[in-house]
Every structure is written in structure tokens, then in C-alpha cells.
């Protein structure tokens, strides 16, 4: 089993991503070309990274939540709330050129996102509501909160400092990519260089046994919900800064579902336990590439969702080991589902 490339957990997600990218070549031969304009890099690949940044962020947070056996449906709403909060603070400011104003607005959004994460975490750990229901509350209520903040309007801001977060460039690359890289790095370091990852996997795999082994399961779970809220908050900032406005209704709509999908494509099981941050990143990139592809090949808008659904279905089937096996060993009459389960982990 060691050394076999196709058994690496990233193999199939990367194959899918590669296929999607190559597919684009048929429609746009210069898909891979990257040009330098005004000192910045431009190209479809850069776009995918740039526009995919919020989704990757949300998915990273979601990965850790799912690893504990939970789920966070409220991330889309937190994205909206965070953006609304930042835009509101900026629009109320007197000195639009002040860097302090933007920092204050960003700080307020992040604090609010953390509070929302705490809210989810407390509902799950203290009141012991099942995660899907606990976070559903904020998913629904969050849209209301976001609209409350924006008074039901779309708040538009024009502040070059704020725009930098989602639309600015650093070292010829979109700044949002650096934010994602930083969060990913921090998340990887925290989970793999400290024992946090082990604790998360342990709690997600068997929370009862983890408690008996002396783990503070509740603290671990609370932490991941807070982290997830934080990630969604940062994603909200990027999104709203990119368009210089906050839309309580539509910002981050269906992000929770895309994020869950990205996590699953990346190889993390919804049952909790082992998680794969890099897998999630590839998963999110697949989803973003798919969206880009659909626009690029000119699928009529009314059926884009159907096309997306079919591709996602195909991706999931390709990823499923048992499906691949059935496909490849059809001539073999017997199959042993239980055994595959065993040998896969052996």
C-alpha cells in the first residue's frame, strides 16, 4: 500500500481538478496563460484562486467542524453578517481615508464572527443540540441579522483601504490569496504541529471514549466552531470588499453547502474523525473551477445548476472507492462490501 500514488488521499481530487482544468482548454486555448498587466498577474488560474478564496476559507473552518462529527450550516449567514458589519462601520465613518477606520471595521466584523462561532459552539456543547439543528438556527436567523445591520438595503462603500482586502494585489498576486495561505498555514500548524489535530480527530471518532481518556471534548468542539465562525467572517470581509458592498440577502448564499461539498470531496468523512485540510483546499478549488468552467463554456444560466449537479455527482462517484471497484471488476462475480471496508484501512 505504501508508495502507490493512486492511494494517496489527494490523488483522486487532484485528478478531478486536473481534468476540469484541461477540459477548459478545449473551449479556451489560452486558459492557462497568465499575463502581466500593470505589474499584476492576470489569467483564469489566478481568477480561480482569487474568487475561490472565500470558499476555501469557509471550507477550512468547516473541515475542522466536520472532523469533530459536527456540521456548521450557518457559515453562509456569518459571511453576510461579517460583510454587513464591516460595510456599516465604514459607511458611518467620518474620515474615509483613515486606515484606523478600516481596521476598526475589520476588527468589529471579526469579533462579531467569533461571537457567532461561540454561539454555535455553546448550543452544541452546553445545550447539547445536534449540530445540524443548532447551526440551522443561526443559518436562518443570521440572514435576518445581516439585513438588520444593513437595514434591508445594500450598503455600498468606496474606501480604497477596504477594497484592498478583496481586490488588492500584493507581489503581483491578489491579496486574498495571501489571506487564504496564512489561514491555511495557521490551521495546518495548529492541527499538525500541536496535539489539537489529534484531539479533534479523537473527539470526532469517539467523543465518549475521548472524554474518558481525559480530553475536554467540549472545549475542543467549542474551539472548532469558533474557528469556523472566524474563517467565515474573514471570507465575508473578502467577499464584501471585493464588490465594495454588503448584501444581507445574497452574500455567501449557499456557501455552507459548497463548503460541505468541498470537505467531502477532499476526503474528510461526514462521520467525523480523520480530516484532510489540503484535500479540502483541492475540493474547494474543484468547485470554483467548475463554476468558472460553466460560465466559460457558456452554459445557459437556467441550467447551470443542473450541469453543476451532474459534475458533482460524477466527482463523488469517481472518488468512491467501491464505485470504482464495481466499475473495474464487473467481471468478478462476487464482491464483499464488508471486506473492502476492512482492506481499505488495513
Amino acid at each position: 500500500m505504501r508508495g502507490k500514488l493512486y492511494q494517496h488521499y489527494l490523488f483522486w481530487p487532484l485528478v478531478v481538478l486536473g481534468t476540469l482544468l484541461l477540459f477548459n482548454l478545449i473551449y479556451s486555448p489560452d486558459f492557462f496563460s497568465i499575463v502581466v498587466r500593470q505589474g499584476n498577474l492576470y489569467g483564469s488560474l489566478i481568477d480561480i484562486l482569487n474568487f475561490g478564496a472565500p470558499l476555501i476559507l469557509v471550507s477550512i473552518g468547516m473541515t475542522l467542524v466536520i472532523a469533530t462529527g459536527g456540521i456548521d450550516l450557518s457559515v453562509g449567514s456569518i459571511v453576510a453578517i461579517s460583510g454587513a458589519m464591516a460595510c456599516l462601520s465604514i459607511s458611518k465613518g467620518t474620515d474615509q481615508n483613515s486606515l484606523l477606520l478600516v481596521l476598526g471595521a475589520v476588527g468589529a466584523s471579526i469579533v462579531l464572527s467569533i461571537i457567532l462561532g461561540v454561539w454555535n459552539g455553546v448550543l452544541v456543547t452546553v445545550t447539547r443540540i445536534q449540530p445540524i439543528i443548532a447551526t440551522l438556527i443561526l443559518m436562518v436567523a443570521g440572514r435576518g441579522i445581516a439585513q438588520l445591520i444593513t437595514s434591508g438595503q445594500i450598503i455600498t462603500v468606496s474606501n480604497s483601504n477596504y477594497e484592498y482586502i478583496g481586490a488588492g494585489s500584493l507581489a503581483a498576486l491578489p491579496f486574498s490569496i495571501f489571506i487564504v495561505a496564512a489561514v491555511l498555514l495557521i490551521a495546518s500548524l495548529l492541527t499538525r504541529r500541536t496535539a489539537l489535530g489529534l484531539f479533534i480527530e479523537s473527539v470526532g471518532s469517539n467523543s465518549n471514549a475521548s472524554r474518558l481518556a481525559g480530553l475536554r471534548s467540549k472545549t475542543v468542539i467549542l474551539t472548532v466552531y469558533i474557528f469556523c465562525g472566524l474563517c467565515a467572517g474573514i471570507a465575508g470581509l473578502i467577499l464584501s470588499s471585493n464588490v465594495s458592498s454588503a448584501d444581507g440577502n445574497n452574500a455567501g448564499l449557499w456557501y455552507e453547502l459548497d463548503a460541505i461539498l468541498a470537505v467531502v470531496i477532499g476526503g474528510t468523512s461526514l462521520n467525523g474523525g480523520r480530516f484532510y485540510l489540503m484535500g479540502t483546499v483541492v475540493g474547494a478549488l474543484i468547485i470554483q473551477t467548475l463554476t468558472t468552467t460553466i460560465y466559460m463554456i457558456g452554459v445557459p444560466p437556467e441550467i447551470t445548476l443542473v450541469v453543476k449537479a451532474f459534475v458533482v455527482l460524477a466527482v463523488c462517484l469517481i472518488q468512491s472507492e467501491s464505485f470504482r471497484k464495481t466499475l473495474m471488476t464487473r467481471w468478478k462475480k462476487r464482491n464483499y462490501p464488508a471486506e473492502q471496508e476492512v482492506t481499505r484501512h488495513a
Binding site: 489529534l198 480527530e201 479523537s202 470526532g204 471518532s205 469517539n206 465518549n208 471514549a209 475521548s210 474518558l212 481518556a213 474523525g273 480523520r274
Partner: peptide
């Protein structure tokens, strides 16, 4: 099974 081992982890972990 329910209060001892953590299924998904290795022997070392």
C-alpha cells in the same frame, strides 16, 4: 468499543 478505543486512530495515537 464505545468507551475505550478511538476507531479512526492508529495504535500509536
Amino acid at each position: 468499543k464505545t468507551e475505550g478505543i478511538i476507531d479512526d486512530l492508529t495504535v500509536r495515537e
